[in-house]
Write a protein that binds this DNA or RNA. Structure first.
Lengths: 324, 324
DNA sequence: GCTGAAATTGTCATTTTTGCCCTTTTTTAT
DNA sequence: ATAAAAAAGGGCAAAAATGACAATTTCAGC
């Protein structure tokens, strides 16, 4: 069985993460090698397009591009205002049937084309709020690492071009080749979620002074039993008003907020120490290990043990420690 | 507390994996950003050296380089014979106190300098045999992904420059900054092993026809109870002779070989299907789940569940399946 | 200072969720 | 084989969140 070559175009715009641009090309190069071992021919043909020379690119692909990739952007703000020539180029190819993929901030470039209206997409967790504000017509889920929506594929992290590449390899060859490639690159091929990597950083700049005071209070007392009624009393507000104002200020209900806070602290204990889960649960204010576990999974998307396996590493001898 | 800047040199030689060269520079750039957030100044200063212009590089670092990185090599054979100017340069810096790091095939360049005599290092699993043959005075452990031996740090996989970068960040700042960087990049910061990614591909080109026949026999019957005595009989050899010739031909004792074979099959079942571990154990010839488990851990370095979490992914709609 | 619309707050019955207790199953370690 | 740890699930009372509506406050415009 032979598969006709898939033409992949990687768009190199100013500020693009070079390791992603080069990395995807190299990834497809290696994918081809694995394909050869499996009796498939060259499956992928990769072209890097310089965004400043889109009208007459150096390497012209033979036919239409099946896949176009918008890499992450390291440069702080340039992804917000891509040039018209870029967005037009992307729109044109999408109309001709290309699958458009974005990684991290590349989603902003893609959104600028208007192709994301009514779509489900993802981007880096740190950019989620901004994206939601700029493009309210697009449903964004930054707990996902990769969303394959048919003709639009979006990936979240700065390094998620690896995951995107694997997804494309799986799609255009098969899962076995994809897994072989993963083993060769020494990367995991199982699905992941951004929620594994996300941490809770409460916002304090919302302007509601009374609620800020409650937030500080919670920051100190999260490991004690806390009731909404008590918080409301402390704030000298009726329970209903407190609730409303808390949600308006923080975007979270009080219990949700408290859960986020507790689980965040739990994560820090788990990833930095070998403390038993029982002690961790107790330490962040849960009497019951089972309840703790349930909440942990809801928020992080993985079990405590998986979290520890993923992040815990015995502290190495640091530069300072070595000197002494 | 401020830390004086660490000068990092990345050596760009012909055939180097560009994503690694660029990626490490970008990784340190982001590490600096995280350092700023933590009240440390710029910690890392990165220079990319073109191996063809080592005598008068474009960007000269102010002081001595603390760290030198030899990236992976995509080009098939060029890493075997690095130019003298490269090895001399590396040796010179090592003498002046630089930490020398290699990734993947970069270990061959490093080995060529002679600095690895008597050292414990790692490289990509696919290159392990060749390395052991070329540099018998170096202890190589390709089950490890990263070996930090003080002034020599070696990493295994093509993408392990990410792990190497994290290791350096942890060493020259602290674990917390390293973990923050990992969360930002959306990569795991816990330790991994190459054995997670290694698969067993028996060699059949050793020339001992009788043993090859036994190997083929095993390939078909691995899921049945098999005894060395029976294998020997089948090969019309005495048990003692069979053993010797089997080891000479395959490099493994018959039971080791059978274990490798069975666990390899188990891995394939686990990563491609949702089959229960009990069924998997049975399917590859283990009556006892506990024994299977023990062997699995011995060979792969992780538990069956961890393995499944790392690699299992529901098969996506492939290009062909979609067409129908 | 008054007025009236808009925003905020308070009350309360209803619905939903949470945390804790328990048991069972799965996975891991000895 | 046995013990321990981790994960999953069900039941339940208490707590929290919701929606509707009434009461109050705010404040621009007259």
């Amino acid at each position: 069985m032979t598969i006709s070559a898939i033409q992949v175009g990687i768009l190199h715009y100013p500020g693009a993460l070079l390791s992603a641009v080069q990395g995807m090309a190299e990834q497809f190069y290696l994918a081809n090698k694995i394909c050869h071992q499996n009796g498939l021919g060259d499956v992928f043909q990769t072209y890097i397009f310089d965004s400043r020379q889109l009208s007459n690119p150096l390497n012209q692909p033979a036919g239409e591009l099946q896949v176009i990739i918008l890499p992450p952007c390291l440069d702080d703000r340039s992804y917000l205002a891509p040039e018209n020539v870029v967005t037009d180029w992307v729109k044109q190819h999408h109309q001709n049937g290309s699958i458009i993929c974005s990684v991290c901030a590349g989603a902003f470039v893609l959104a600028k084309t208007g192709l994301l209206k009514g779509r489900r997409v993802t981007t880096h967790w740190a950019l989620a709020e901004e994206f939601a504000r700029l493009y309210p017509e697009t449903e964004i889920d930054c707990n996902k690492l990769l969303i394959n929506d048919g003709d639009i594929i979006t990936a979240g992290g700065l390094m998620s071009w690896i995951d995107l590449g694997l997804e494309l390899v799986a799609q255009f060859t098969n899962t076995q080749v994809m897994r072989q490639l993963g083993k060769y690159l020494i990367v995991d091929t199982g699905p992941r979620e951004q929620s594994y990597y996300r941490s809770f950083t409460p916002r304090l700049d919302h302007g509601d002074e009374i609620i800020v005071r409650v937030q500080h209070q919670l920051q100190r007392n999260f490991n004690n039993p806390i009731m909404v009624k008590a918080m409301a009393q402390q704030a000298h507000l009726s329970e209903r008003t407190f609730l409303r104002r808390f949600v308006a200020a923080t975007g979270l209900k009080p219990t949700q907020y408290l859960q986020q806070l507790r689980i965040q602290k739990a994560c820090e204990l788990i990833e930095a120490s070998g403390m038993s889960f029982e002690k961790v649960a107790e330490g962040v204010g849960y009497e019951d290990l089972s309840a703790f576990r349930k909440t942990f999974i809801k928020i992080t998307g993985q079990t405590p043990k998986e979290f520890r396996k993923r992040f815990f590493r015995a502290a190495p001898a640091s530069a300072e420690t070595q000197k002494q």
